[in-house]
């Protein structure tokens, strides 16, 4: 019997299994175990969470493989890791290490200011950030098996993730309601590959799952993103920058599952301690906006 690895179905299917779940940023084995225990569907192994990357400044790169390995050995849920946009070798290194999913991420300093990775060349699946249908469909055409909103990472401010999710949902609706002869011009105007738009029109949704990321700081934030149509949620700095990570992690997982149960979310939100402090987006200078990275 033939055995085929790295097919679209296998790569996209992996992301389908994560639906309704929460993927948490962790920087060591201890945090990874807390995340798994709280019910995370995957962890993202990093050297620093986005808010610390923001604070540290300088060039942010792929994590030290020691950290990735430490996290891989600590948990049985999937382990993701980030590589710089366009950094072929960081991606290949993470693939060689057996990372389950790679995030070609704007949180790290881009290695290529023109080209993203050609992700179809890899056996490992990729997730990429997007702010609108153009970015999402270009990444999908390059081979991304999962999309997430960019939001504004490391700010603890949900406003940009909301903007991006609303933008994508309304553009998906536009495409679905268009007649086919309008789609080519829409493709030209939004920089979206035509074939991917046709697929969206046919199926009423992106051909891959679409998670929310970039600014989720509370259980209500996670539930909000689910209500806006996210398939699941990434939480970066929100958990381990809060006062009580165990409790916070559990509360965010439950709020994501039961995003329409408001009495439950009220209960989950009680006595959680302080959430991460957060940054008002208008105080960020243009050069500090990570969402502008990616092309």
């Amino acid at each position: 019997m033939v055995k085929q690895t790295g097919t679209d179905l296998v790569k996209r299917g992996m992301a389908e299994m994560q639906k309704g779940g929460v993927i948490m940023d962790v920087i060591n084995a201890e945090q990874a175990k807390i995340a798994e225990e709280a019910g995370a569907v995957a962890v993202m192994a990093l050297e620093r969470v986005p808010s610390d990357i923001r604070a540290a400044g300088g060039v942010a790169r792929m994590a030290d493989p020691t950290i990735v390995e430490e996290v891989q050995n600590a948990v049985s849920i999937p382990v993701m890791a980030k590589c710089r946009i366009g950094h072929i070798v960081e991606a290949r290194v993470l693939e060689a290490m057996g990372v389950d999913y790679i995030d070609e991420s704007e949180v790290l300093t881009p290695a290529d200011e023109v080209y993203h990775l050609y992700k179809r060349d890899y056996t490992v699946p990729f997730v990429c950030g997007a702010r609108d249908i153009g970015e999402a469909t270009r990444r999908i055409a390059e081979g991304a098996s999962m999309i997430r909103t960019k939001g504004e990472p490391g700010t603890g401010n949900i406003v940009e993730a909301v903007r991006h999710m609303r933008m994508m949902q309304s553009q998906i609706n536009e495409v679905v309601n268009m007649s086919v002869d309008e789609i080519m011009t829409y493709a030209k105007n939004t920089g979206s590959p035509f074939e991917v738009l046709l697929n969206i029109k046919e199926n009423g949704k992106l051909p891959v799952v679409n998670f929310a990321a970039g600014g989720v700081a509370t259980p209500s934030d996670a539930a909000l993103m689910m209500q806006l149509g996210a398939d699941g949620v990434f939480v970066g700095s929100g958990i381990f920058k809060s006062d009580n990570p165990e409790k916070f992690a559990r509360a965010i997982v439950e709020a994501t599952t039961h995003y329409e149960d408001y009495a439950l979310i009220a209960k989950l939100s009680k006595d959680l301690g302080t959430a991460m402090k957060g940054i008002e987006i208008s105080t960020l200078e243009q050069k500090d906006r990570m969402q502008e990275r990616g092309w």
Binding site: V2, K3, T5, T7, L9, M14, S76, P78, G98, V99
Partner: peptide
């Protein structure tokens, strides 16, 4: 046995 075939890169399609 969980994850018996390995990690995601070892995930595959076949006919049964």
């Amino acid at each position: 046995e969980r994850n018996a075939f390995g990690r995601q890169r070892e995930s595959f399609e076949t006919t049964l």
